[in-house]
Amino acid sequence: MVRVQAVGLRVRAGRRMAVDGIDLDLKNGVHGVLGPNGAGKTTLMRALATVLRPASGELTMLGTALGSRESLRQVRERIGYLPQKFGYYKRFTVREFVEYMAWLKQMPGVDIPGAVERAVERVGLGDRADDKLSTLSGGMVRRVGIAQAIVNEPAVLLLDEPTAGLDPAERMRFRALLRESAEDTCVVVSTHLVEDVAAGCDQVLLMDKGRVLFQGGTDELAAAGEASEVGDSPLERGYSALLDRAAR
């Protein structure tokens, strides 16, 4: 089932057209959005999160074209989003914050306590659930960000640079969580780290200057590189090769 579909999507970031004509057809699984800084990844993620209105093109999420207030509301109930800059209220405890987000996501009141418990448990913060966010480390705060994104068991999970600030053990745990979710969720992860894509993604979308340079499996990306390219792994060489080719 196609979860996210875009045709000729163009999205502005300020005056700049940061996403400049992108077609997408994303099903369940983990999709890595890869690209150098400034490629338009965050703007694309914001458009998919429905917080930015596209300048032109069509965007269909979960089979619903986004237009009316009601269609937005329905789609958002089934979206989870972790922005690149995850802001939070530091006086809230982990549980309070995730509970508040569950309320904003219009979850039925009776389901909230259980859903909050599960989300906090899944990111491994069960023992810190009653601690204030101000007392947590950067990596733990990031995990709270993931918990709030998954509390409503979204069908589309959008994570913008989710591994920033996570230590190696947290990264591994996070990738396990992605793989676990991928069966029945369309996960879109943006990153500028090729290793993130290598470890956790089924599909790669390589972006540069607002356009998609490449869309395919990680093995295809690796195959695009030659031994002469810059990079420590086949994937990195494939990444540099495609960016070089586009620059020429």
Binding site: A49, R76, M101, K105, Q106
Partner: peptide
């Protein structure tokens, strides 16, 4: 509002 972006993405935003 530090949490503005995640709040804006929720169904209650409006």
């Amino acid at each position: 509002d530090p949490a503005h972006e995640i709040v804006a993405c929720t169904p209650r935003a409006g």
